[in-house]
Design a protein around this nucleic acid. Structure first.
Lengths: 212, 212
DNA sequence: TGTCAATTGTCAGTGACTGTCACTAGCCTC
DNA sequence: GAGGCTAGTGACAGTCACTGACAATTGACA
């Protein structure tokens, strides 16, 4: 493995710097109140260069999220075949939270990532994009689940349904965490775990028999 | 009940016309390829007027959807108390499809609404907004469910979880319908019904025991 | 009918984003 | 290690969504 040339390293540095500066400005003063010009002035590149790295101002807000999601997909693909679909997704998510630092530390500190996550949840324009990206990921995940279970994605609706329900719960936990007071890494991990445990019971035909 | 004055009627007419023309242009030539100027030229109002009726170009794309959603919320509130949460949501949705014409015919034909729905699903920028709007509605619905069941929304996670799972399935059906070949009203109604029936079984711990 | 207030139009400006073209700087060959 | 090649960048002009301010118009109502 030859390490990449100067040109390649320079590009990576510019991209990382744009990402870091953008997230810092977004979290500090708000997404809408930050202009692309502010970002590029701080990094000392032209606006045109920014738009060569990121197709929109929104995209840079998800640069780190993108990395985290790729790791989740990898982790899911490596869960033991014995695990049921739900356990596989659940464990992939939880192990992702446990090792998040490894994935992103070269670009931004974990703490900035968590603040970015909150900013996304509380900025309508970004929340919208976040949700769309999530559904795109669902399709990927459904494919992995279908393969694990040896099912045809277009003949059997269960993979998509299960993933949709699972993601729905993930989304709710994300929102509640963003609104809550404890915004630590441990808090969102615990919330994720708790809410996933509730999914089965919540779908019982009547909640009146069994108050879990 | 006095019928509204001329001024009021004129406003309604302008709003409806902007909506209809916008949806026609969007569905005919695509959302991004349609400029606000085209819309206002066709209706013969100034651009400024457009933005007084709709806070953004996106908003006009959801004007009809908005009406449909309000009807769903009403219908849900009127389901008999004996129905469990899932049945209530399910029946409210299905009865909504059965009476959709009543709700929107004064603004646009049902057929244009269906085409708009597809356009939203296939336009990334609009899909994102659609998903965000859906989650906002989920919060409303969770409140209604919690009240029906006599639960505290913040103490008991089940209403939000159930609604999230339910909405996830609704979303998947919407997407599949948009991609499929039969884009009739009957098709989306049938798909909705079928997929909701599958939700319970899909959440069983293992799918290997019981192939429904 | 004349006054008031709601509605609309005009105009100037901002910010995200794109196409084009000239220029700079790694890279690679001889 | 000089020179050509090309990926990457900057400068500039233009489009489009959207906003604030103020002037013009037009229902409403005494």
């Amino acid at each position: 493995m030859t390490l990449p040339g100067l040109r390649e390293r320079k590009k990576q540095r510019t991209r990382d710097e744009l990402t870091r500066v953008a997230l810092e400005l977004f979290t500090a003063q708000g997404y809408e109140r930050t202009t692309v010009d502010e970002i590029v002035d701080a990094v000392e590149v032209s606006q045109r260069t920014f738009f060569r790295y990121f197709s929109s101002k929104e995209e840079v807000a998800f640069a780190v999220q993108q990395m985290v999601e790729e790791r989740f997909v990898d982790a899911l693909g490596q869960r033991p075949p014995g695990e049921g679909p739900f356990d596989a997704m659940r464990n992939a998510v939880l192990s992702g939270w446990d090792t998040i630092g490894d994935a992103i530390i070269e670009v931004v500190p974990v703490e900035l990532y968590l603040r970015t996550f909150q900013m996304i949840e509380s900025t309508p324009a970004l929340l919208a994009v976040h949700l769309r990206r999530s559904t795109e990921m669902e399709e990927t995940i459904a494919g992995i689940i279908a393969e694990r279970e040896g099912l045809d994605l277009d003949a059997d609706p269960r993979p998509r349904i299960a993933v949709a329900a699972f993601s729905g719960v993930m989304r709710v936990t994300g929102q509640l965490w963003g609104r809550g007071t404890d915004q630590s890494l441990e808090a969102i991990r615990a919330l994720t775990e708790e809410y996933l445990d509730h999914l089965g019971p919540a779908l019982a035909p009547s909640w009146r028999d069994d108050r879990s």
